[in-house]
Design a protein around this nucleic acid. Structure first.
Lengths: 100, 100
DNA sequence: TTTGACTTGTCAATAATTGTCTAATGTAAG
DNA sequence: CTTACATTAGACAATTATTGACAAGTCAAA
């Protein structure tokens, strides 16, 4: 489930209009449309504003948001599984290093 | 193994100086130093130039490079494993969708 | 038609990044 | 200690990329 799919689903469940949600977020309707359709990435503050406007758990929503950014970065690559594996190992290793 | 660690290791094995490799890449020594130390991300063309200068397999090196970019993006996050899982699922799903 | 919801393309404004310069630091040899 | 050379750090202009708004477009229901 992408970030855009996720927030569109919730918005429609709640029967809110793009312009209602966009207004709460202080952005243009067109921009929110693009975010939902995945042609634009939201900014972090926008993702947070969305959580508020849609009354969703902020952390869960931010996970989808962050995953989307990774997808966007990797979408042209091959060996994606291998790349993600390396990335995860490095993050784990770096976080251990920072504790020392 | 991060991208920077990887290329520094190879450079030192081959007993090359920063300025020698940097010169082949047409960049400043200082910039290569930063790339090796991970305080700057290389650009894709630079990663490719490095593969050439160090006579390494380009794809393998680009995997480390791409993994580094992900690490850079995720380093402040929690639930990293979960985020990576969502990202991988979405990429797989999107690639299937594009085949249709 | 008309209306309202949504989408698309464009582009100036804004923000992020890149690469170089200079100066600093480290280090081994004389 | 000097000197010489390799590497690193900080700062900044230049280059790129992202952002958000606007206007014009599509689409579906009345």
């Amino acid at each position: 489930m992408t970030f855009g799919e996720y927030i569109r689903e919730i918005r429609e469940e709640k029967q809110l209009l793009l312009r209602e949600v966009a207004s709460q977020m202080n952005i243009d309707t067109a921009l929110l449309s693009k975010i939902e359709r995945g042609t634009r990435l939201a900014r972090k503050e926008q993702a947070e504003a969305l959580a508020k406007a849609l009354k969703q758990n902020k952390n869960e929503l931010l996970q989808f948001w962050m995953a989307d950014k990774i997808v966007f970065m990797l979408k042209e690559e091959k060996n994606i599984t291998e790349i993600l594996k390396i990335a995860e190992q490095n993050i784990i290793r770096l976080s251990k290093k920072n504790k020392n």
